[in-house]
């Protein structure tokens, strides 16, 4: 399989980005929902937020690399069977998903650094606070983070639903092209 995208299918790099980020986002969403309800004495009370923060930072780097790769190696051309409307909707959805993902990592980062302190990423390196301490920023950022998360999950479900519709109802190659099979 080629690394780069071809005109009729995605390459290995784009697929790894797509499915890796998808899995990571589901994981972060589940852990995020679970960890905010932990009691103070739970052994995971500090661990899960640490993992969530750390993974979020790695996700941010992955998103930047993914976008760079996307410009270097553009996605395949839409199937000729897709209507103009379908093409526009799909493209709009992709960019909205990117926007939401960046919104998620930025708002999440701001929750953690609202007190002006950076944080450790898996103990590997320190993510610095690029802003000064700002009172109640963690509230604004936290509320945005929560709303964006739900919006993202709903849109991801629509995105996945559309892919499944193309696969099972239209019986075209839309989903297969992201699974390493052309045509």
């Amino acid at each position: 399989m080629p690394w780069k995208n071809a005109h009729d299918r995605y390459g290995v790099v784009a697929m790894i980005f797509h499915w890796g980020i998808a899995l990571t986002v589901f994981g972060l969403f589940g852990v995020g929902l679970y960890m905010v309800d932990l009691s103070y004495y739970d052994s995971l009370y500090n661990k899960l937020p640490h993992w969530h923060r750390s993974t979020g930072v790695l996700l941010a780097f992955a998103l930047v690399l993914r976008l760079l790769w996307r410009f270097w190696s553009p996605p395949p051309t839409p199937l000729s069977s897709h209507t103009i409307m379908e093409r526009r909707l799909a493209a709009a959805m992709h960019w909205v998903l990117y926007l939401l993902l960046f919104g998620m990592v930025i708002s999440g980062y701001l929750i953690s650094v609202a007190d002006g302190r950076g944080f450790s990423v898996f103990g590997w390196f320190e993510m610095p606070a690029l802003i000064e301490r700002r009172p109640n920023l963690e509230d604004t950022a936290g509320d945005i983070h929560e709303w964006l998360a739900w919006t993202l999950i709903v849109l991801v479900a629509m995105h996945a639903g559309a892919a499944l519709k193309h696969h099972f109802i239209d019986r075209d190659a839309t989903l297969r092209r992201m699974l390493g099979r052309g045509k």
């Binding site: 905010v36 009691s39 929750i111 953690s112 609202a114 963690e138 509230d139």
Partner: peptide
Amino acid sequence: TRSVDSNHSERDRHIRDED
């Protein structure tokens, strides 16, 4: 009450919630 400040943003957010 929203102005509670323990000099730790994530802890402050927890202190402000229903718990």
